[in-house]
Simulated scan of single mutants.
Amino acid sequence: MMINNIDHTISSSSSFNNCRLTAGCSGGSDVALARRRRAELRRSKVSVPSQGDESLIKRKRFETCENESTEFPQHSCVIGRRREMEDAVSVELGFVNDNNDNNSRKFDFYGVYDGHGGSRVANGCRERLHKVLAAEMAVGSGRVAGFDWETLMVESFEKMDEEVNELEFVGSVGSTATVVVVGEDVIVVANCGDSRAVLSRGGAAVPLSNDHKPDRPDELERIERSGGTVINWNGQRVMGVLATSRSIGDRHLNPYVIPKPEVTVNKREDGDEFMILASDGLWDVISNDLACHVVRKCIDGRISTCRRRSQQLNDNQYRMTNAATVLTELAMARGSKDNISVIVVNLKRLIRSHVR
Score class of each variant (00 low, 15 high):
Y110E: 04
E168A: 10
S141C: 08
W149E: 01
M160R: 09
V154C: 00
E150F: 02
Y110I: 08
H130C: 01
Y113H: 13
V170G: 02
E150G: 06
A134M: 15
R120A: 15
A122Q: 13
M137S: 14
Y113I: 09
W149V: 07
L152S: 08
F157A: 06
R143G: 14
G111T: 03
G124V: 00
G171C: 08
G142S: 11
D114V: 04
E158A: 10
T151M: 05
G115N: 09
R120G: 08
V154M: 00
G115L: 13
E158M: 09
H130N: 11
L167V: 05
R126V: 13
V154F: 00
R128C: 13
H130Y: 10
D114F: 03
D148C: 08
A134T: 12
V139K: 14
Y113G: 00
V112N: 13
N123H: 14
E150C: 07
V154Q: 05
M153I: 08
V132L: 11
L152W: 00
M137A: 14
V139G: 05
G118V: 11
V164N: 06
V164I: 11
G117M: 15
A122V: 11
F157K: 06
E150M: 02
G146E: 07
H130V: 00
K131Y: 11
V154A: 07
G142F: 04
R143K: 15
V112M: 11
S172L: 13
A134S: 15
G140C: 11
R120W: 15
E158L: 10
S141T: 07
V121Q: 07
F147M: 15
V132E: 02
V121L: 10
G171A: 04
V164L: 12
L133E: 03
F147A: 12
E168M: 13
N123E: 14
M137I: 15
A134P: 12
E127P: 04
S119M: 10
E136F: 11
E168T: 09
G171W: 03
D114P: 09
N165Y: 07
F169T: 03
V132D: 00
H130G: 00
F109S: 08
M153K: 09
V139W: 09
W149C: 03
G146P: 06
G117H: 01
K131R: 12
N165R: 14
W149I: 07
G118H: 09
C125F: 01
G118P: 09
K131A: 02
E162F: 08
R128D: 11
C125R: 00
V154G: 01
V112R: 03
E150T: 06
E163L: 14
A122K: 02
A134I: 13
L129C: 05
Y113N: 00
V144Q: 10
V121W: 10
E162H: 12
A138K: 10
